Amino acid sequence: MHADTARLPPTAPPLRQGAALAVVIPTFNERDNVARMVEVLDAALAGIPFEMVFVDDDSRDGTRDKLAEIAAADPRVRMVHRIGRRGLSTAVVEGILSTTTPYVAVIDADLQHDERVLPQMLEILQAGEADVVVGSRYTAGGSTGDWEQSRVRVSAVATKLARMVARVPLTDPMSGFFALTRAAFDSAVRDLSGQGYKVLLDICASSAAPLRMAEVPYQFRRREAGDSKLDAMIVWEYLLLLVDKLIGHVVPARFVSFMAIGGIGVFVHMAVLSLLMATGGLPFMWAQASATGVAMVFNFFVNNLLTYRDRRLKGFVAVTRGLLSFVTVCSVGAIANVGIAEVLFAGYRYAWWLAGLAGIVVGAFWNYAATALFTWKAK
């Protein structure tokens, strides 16, 4: 036996040789679907050497235990367990990075994508006809299934927005079901934003050169078990992805989100101040201080929900600490804002509006950077 092999620990997973395709499957609370997923992939890819990489975002419903049980009996099944990180795009990226196969496919764990078209996708890639093959709901022969009209309309708008940044002609750039070559992924991976859940769009927009695309139709199916992970916040994440791909090389998308929420906070501040002044119960200084406090609390909770959704603080203790940290940091930012504006106006004779703007910019950058570091623990 080779000396290096002899030193492998007893718990080392069996080596997988000759796999042509890795199927990456992100999971979060999908215990009742994973065994079925293995079963349908096994049937669809019969005769093709492949492996399955489940990337689990620390599920608490027994998903990981179920996967461990399956992997013990099937060496083609692997699991990447992520702790402290969440998000479909980054899960897909980590899953692909954990493999060395020349071709990779991405499919949801909820069984809504039609795995039976995977061999056709792989055949197109192996023939060198495309760099990326997308499972499309909108090309001839495809269908969104029993979607409500409201969801169809939202998807149509999102698809039109996606074409602004995708740089490739696709009927379904929003698809989460696709296959690609290792070279195509490598050409984009270092510039991926990791924002939101539309990783295909991210890859298309981040590639160093335009990718050759192909589409195969499929019928979108009903979820077999578990709950949908889609919610209203997904829309915000999608918009952040578009912002990142359009101007992210100049301004981070998180900063845009932070500033947009800060702008809304100004209206909250003025609304509270107007109400307090109208009642006449408080002197202006106390009314202003109260309005400032309310606006800070508003900004913290909305940023926690939207800007830092992937690092969201949860639980009474974590949220309380985060709020105190946010208020402290923003108070320092407010002092810096006023101080710099005063120095520029009184000391250097800047126009009042220019001095005020400079103070706002410095305070905004301080608040963004410091809250990312101290409140939401950016690394």
Rank of each mutant, 00 (worst) to 15 (best):
H2W: 10
P9Y: 01
L15S: 15
Q17D: 13
A20T: 14
A22T: 06
I25M: 05
P26W: 00
P26K: 00
E30H: 11
R31C: 09
D32Q: 10
D32G: 04
R36L: 13
V40Y: 08
L41Q: 06
D42F: 09
A44Y: 10
L45A: 06
F50L: 07
D56N: 15
D56C: 14
D58C: 13
S59E: 13
R64S: 11
D65Q: 10
D65P: 01
D65Y: 02
L67A: 04
P75D: 13
V77H: 04
V77G: 03
R78S: 07
I83D: 11
G87A: 08
L88A: 04
S89T: 08
E94R: 09
E94K: 03
S98K: 01
P102C: 06
V106D: 03
D108G: 11
L111G: 08
L111I: 12
Q112P: 02
P119F: 09
M121V: 04
A127E: 14
E129K: 15
V133N: 01
V133F: 03
S143N: 07
S150N: 12
R153T: 08
V154Y: 14
S155M: 12
V157R: 09
A158N: 10
V165E: 07
V168N: 05
V168P: 00
V168L: 06
D172Q: 11
D172G: 10
M174N: 04
M174P: 02
F178C: 00
A179F: 06
T181V: 04
R182P: 03
R182Q: 07
F185D: 05
G194T: 10
S207N: 07
P210Y: 05
L211Y: 00
A214N: 06
F220H: 15
R221P: 03
A225Y: 14
G226A: 05
G226R: 00
D227L: 13
S228Q: 13
S228F: 13
S228G: 15
L230V: 15
I234T: 15
I234W: 10
V235H: 10
V235S: 12
W236P: 01
Y238R: 07
Y238F: 14
L241T: 04
K245A: 03
G248S: 04
G248E: 01
V251C: 08
P252D: 07
A253V: 05
A253H: 00
V256W: 01
F258W: 04
M259N: 09
A260M: 14
I264S: 12
I264L: 15
G265R: 02
L273V: 00
S274E: 13
A278H: 14
P283K: 10
W286N: 07
A287D: 10
A291M: 02
M296E: 11
L305I: 07
T307P: 02
T307D: 02
Y308K: 00
R309P: 01
G315R: 09
V319T: 13
S325R: 09
V327M: 10
C330M: 07
I335Y: 11
I340E: 05
A341F: 03
V343K: 06
R349P: 02
R349C: 09
A351Y: 12
L354N: 04
G356W: 00
A358C: 09
V361C: 08
A364Q: 12
T371C: 11
A372T: 08
A372D: 13
T375P: 01
W376E: 05
